[in-house]
Structure formats: C-alpha cells, structure tokens
Design a protein around this nucleic acid. Sequence first.
DNA 1: GTGCTTGTTGGCCA
DNA 2: GTGGCCAACAAGCA
Length: 275
Amino acid sequence: MPELAEVEFFRRRWNPGLGQRIVAVAVHSRARVFRGAPTSAIVSALRGQTLLSSSAAAKHLLFRFSGDTWLGIHLDMSGELLVRPADHRPGKHDHVVLRTTTHALVSADPRMFGRVDLHRGTEPPPWWTALAPPLLSPEFTATAVAEFRRRRARAPLKAVLLLQERFPGVGNWMADEILWRAALHPRRLAGSLTPAEVRTLWRECCRVARLALATIAGRTEADTPPDLNVRIPDTWLFNHRWRDGGRCPRTGCPLVREEIGGRTTCWSPARQKLT
DNA sequence: GTGCTTGTTGGCCA
DNA sequence: GTGGCCAACAAGCA
C-alpha cells in the first residue's frame, strides 16, 4: 500500500519513541522481511540504544539510533508502522517490536514483501544515499524528466512513472493521479510527448506529491488506513479509481480500468486521449 | 475455492 | 549494453 505520503505518515507514527531508550527488542525470527539482516544482530544492536531521529524518502524509512546504529524499513505492499502500549503482545505479523518504557514501536507486514535492514556506522547506509532526488527537491526538474523520457522512449508513461530511479515514491495510485491531472493517456509512449506535455507531466508530479503529503502524511494517529479514502477530496481521481462504475470527477464520464505496464491502471478516456 | 491486491527484483528476450 | 516484460514473493480479502 504505502507510497510517498503514506510512508511519511507511518514514519510519524513512531515519533512517540523519539529520544526514548529501547529497553527490549522482539523480532519474528523466521520472517522473510529479515532476509537483509540476521535477527540476532538487530536485537543486539538496538537493545539499549536511543532512537534519535527518523527520515522518510521514496518508499524507504530510516531510523537513527545512538551507537551509530540505523534501522532501515521498506514497507513494500503491506507493511505498516504502529505504536502500541509498552506491554503490547506481538501479533502474527508484528515482525519488529521496539519497547521503550512507555510505548511499543511495531513494524508489521502480513505479506512480508517488505524488508528490514540494519546498518552500523557514522554515515547513513549506501542504499539510502543512492536514492533518487525527491519529487519536491530542486534536483527534480522538468529537464531531468525530459532526459529520462528520452531514455525510456518506448515504454508507456504508466510504466515510466513507476520507475523509482527517477520518480521516487510514486506508486500505482500516484501514477494514475498524475497522468489524470496531466490529461495524458497512460499508454502514451514516453518518447511521444511534446516538450509542453513533458512540462505538464513534471508539474503534476510535483503537485500530486505536495497534495498527497499535505493530505495524507498529516493525518492524526487516530486515522487508520481504511479511513484513508474519507480524508481525500472527491475532486481527486483516488476516490473513484477502484469503484466499479466510477466516474471521472472532472468530466463525469465513466472511468476505465485496464492493465498497463503490468499494473491495474485507471484513467478517464474523456480526458486522457491516446492520440 | 477463485481471483484480485497501491512494490520490487531478477531472468529472459528483443 | 539497454530496456521492456513477466513471474515470483505471501497473505488477506471479497
């Protein structure tokens, strides 16, 4: 589920642990999420350390602890971070539980496509520094989008927007939202865009990232993912994309769903033309 | 039981 | 070498 803004939302969920000492660590030792780091190393590295800060970038989370210890979490499709009372008993899908004296910081992931990584050192791990510049950074320019489009000229726009090396944090629904706002058909080949269309695409990438962060990342702790749709205005494609018989909020015409680039894609034929 | 699922990766192929 | 496409990963839900 989590894309850019949802990842940021989950990052904030662990804020009650900031500045707190981890008094105990519980892990689900056989879970697939630990394929990047042995659970014994995670337990011994984090126990007794203090959570100093956290960051979210693209679909990744990085938590910095004292003792030059870092915990990376990728939530992938079904991961979620939670805060529970200190005496929380781990459920079936709670793979990491970091206990402070007041809270339990929980990382859960039913499908286990996500991963948990441990890093030791004064600097953040290499995979973190190698992430593409965020959509809202000065490095994410219309020129960079134009250059990338030239390299991926023969791929449909939908598939191109999902490439994290240029559009970090963009997932399925964000890609559809961006193309819908830019009035570009998801099947258009990236190489076919005019310079003006490239600029529009870039602008809508930034706009959707900003809107998503403002709307989703700032939700309160009481909000849970099933309530997500409630908070999102009906003027977005988001609220209509999965509903059978959904209609385009701008034209009122029926929406279409089809697989493009290997992913279910929703668009408004009245607004997004192929030619 | 069947058929879906908002992500990523590696292997295959053009 | 580059880039597009697909299956696989695993569990829950309708």
